[in-house]
Design a protein around this nucleic acid. Sequence first.
RNA 1: GGAGAGGUGGCCGAGUGGUCGAAGGCGCACGCCUGGAAAGUGUGUAAACCGUAAGGUUUCGAGGGUUCGAAUCCCUCCCUCUUCGCCA
Length: 439
Amino acid sequence: MLDPKFLRNNLDVVAVQLARRGFTLDTGKLTDLEAERKVLQARTQELQAERKSKSKEIGLAKKNGQDVSEILSAVAKFGDELKAAEIRLKELQDETHALLMMIPNIPHESTPDGKDEDENVELRRWGDIPSFDFAVKDHVDLGAELGDGWNGKGGLMDFENAARLSGARFSILKGPLARMHRALIQFMLNTHTEEHGYSENYVPYLVRPDALRGTGQLPKFKEDLFAIEADEEAIEADKQLHLIPTAEVPVTNMVRESILDEAELPLRLTAHTPCFRSEAGAYGKDVRGLIRQHQFEKVELVQIVKPQDSLSALDELLGHAEKILQLLNLPYRVVALCTGDIGFSASKTFDLEVWVPAQETYREISSCSNFGDFQARRMLARWRNKATGKPELVHTINGSGLAVGRTLVAIIENYQQADGSIRVPEVLIPYMGGMEVIR
RNA sequence: GGAGAGGUGGCCGAGUGGUCGAAGGCGCACGCCUGGAAAGUGUGUAAACCGUAAGGUUUCGAGGGUUCGAAUCCCUCCCUCUUCGCCA
């Protein structure tokens, strides 16, 4: 959420900044709401102050054994007006808040302008794109042909069977492929906790709407989430559980409604979780196979930092994600997302895109964003500034380190051999019980 | 799921209808003391919101109710702890 105070005092400036990302701010609506709110709030508070002082008078008078009937009737006179004012004020505040919750973050000044992903800016490339002296296959074909005879049928990557259980966009991994998937998770977590200073967390996969509002998935992106069936009462009480679309939600919300000591910062948190997304995007070659699933695994990196540190922390976190690709020797590039492509809550985002040989292109494998105080304000996550003695909003940063399924895709395709077998990346061999090739 | 006990400021903890946003302690900040530190000691220190400010409003798990007035009384719900049952 944007700072409501800043917003109403700089409506036109904010509108211009939001226009950079293609969002049209309804300034007229906000102005109208604000005008009515201001008058009403002043009046309401005036009446409340009146009631408060009168009530104190009554208390004193009673104690002194004086007659209070005169004061009582004075209070009764404006009771109805006060009640009506309070109700209307609440309505106005709720309406304004609902509007505010639908407004995306302001892009950071360093975020390049652009209307969509075509205008993202490539910053650098790493690694050598492998050349093959045979026709490369994609991971779907490779996976289906691997493990001949393994448990009878279906290859090591089986979408047909998964579809029978769960429908489209689910997958089954078997044998050494399932193990490599698990190996990747261990490898990523070990690297981040042992080399990059993150603390490991195990977190809930089901969360309440408040947590999702905190990080920005709600209220605007309800259709992308899987919700658990709940009765009217639970929904009314705002307790309906949702499957997490990313570990960002439970991990970032670990600091919600708290005031952190300055000495505790920065917090570097990591967690491996499954992620569930119901997004019903178009099918096509570029989302074939394991690329876009309703259920996938991810190792997430989150940092909670002081505002002045967030830009450098984003660079640092990006480096931590890059390190995984480097250790796996997977070629990738770093892309700065333009204003038209950054997510709702983000002010600045770098994507890591890994080389996918079968598509002869780079595909997103990690998205690292600085949210500024946007999520912190929604969560009421603060730190105590020693200089001022006051609580101030933290800044939040997160990124995938990495998406496990897509990393598996990248390994399968980049490490494929002419006979359809897959070499195991050097760093994963210990995690694979010494296995060097998957056949 | 049953029974019992609880949910108060950054933390602990007092407070059962009125001058309570709330004693006391811890922590923190600044000062005194000290060669320096610790100890001791003095003062200050909840948050959110409105307001340029002065100042004001709200908040004692959440929501509703009673009342001129609620941390305090009533109702509903949530959560935590203990215990029994069940279970991985």
